[in-house]
Simulated scan of single mutants.
Amino acid sequence: MNFLSLAQNRYTTKKYNPTKKVSNNDIESLKEILRLSPSSINSQPWKFIFVSDEAIKNALAAESFFNEPKIKDASHLVVFCAVDDIATFENQIQQHLPEGAVGYYNQFIKPQSEAAIKSWLQHQVYLSLGCFLSACATMAIDATPMEGIKIDAYNSILKLKNYTSLFALAIGYRDDNDTNQPSVKPKSRLHLDDIIEVV
């Protein structure tokens, strides 16, 4: 299947089959794909937490508003986190990035406010989301991205230090009766002419 077909057929899964689990091999592949995700200046200001332990998954589900049933039935929950301590990030790039990349950060990002810097860091994590959703589609793994989580509760349950949760993805395999799948509920998108301009 080509990528256009994958884009036409992937969707946000609303109901999972709780008996089907993503294989360990596929999980390892997804971890490596996340590791290879792009970020500005190769900054990599992130952490990705794969949750398969049912007790922890259920605890997080309880802090996820109307997303709770999806998380409970899904094979895994992946929590996408951004570094939340600027000193920690600056130490990381000093150790791992070339001088030019560090110079870019020091000249263009560091002079901004703390809120603006953290916003820039968090935007990098969202780049990895696109990679991850595309990877899941190519591997025939269903996924549900969700910002509907209680950030402070997630941070506490996961014992995060110097990082903060941003959003989570349930992954697994759809229930045959999921009414959100495109064969039941056709995808709805704006018309191409409304969103694409050629100049």
Rank of each mutant, 00 (worst) to 15 (best):
Q122V: 02
L127M: 14
S134F: 03
S134K: 04
Y126G: 02
W120T: 08
F108M: 03
C136I: 02
K110W: 03
S113R: 02
Y126P: 04
Q124R: 07
S128R: 03
A135N: 12
L133T: 13
A116H: 10
E114W: 00
A115G: 02
K110F: 05
A116L: 11
K110Y: 04
C131S: 15
E114G: 00
I117T: 03
H123S: 09
T138G: 02
W120F: 12
L133V: 15
H123K: 14
L129T: 03
S134T: 15
S119D: 08
T138H: 07
Q112D: 13
V125N: 04
A135D: 12
A115N: 04
K118P: 00
I117K: 13
H123T: 11
Q122A: 14
S119L: 13
L121C: 06
K110A: 15
S134C: 08
A115S: 11
W120S: 01
T138R: 09
F132D: 11
S134Y: 02
K110Q: 13
E114T: 09
S113K: 09
Q124P: 10
A116C: 00
P111T: 09
K110C: 05
I109W: 08
C131I: 15
S128P: 10
L127P: 08
G130I: 07
A115C: 01
I109F: 01
I117V: 14
C136V: 06
A135P: 13
W120R: 05
T138Q: 13
L129M: 12
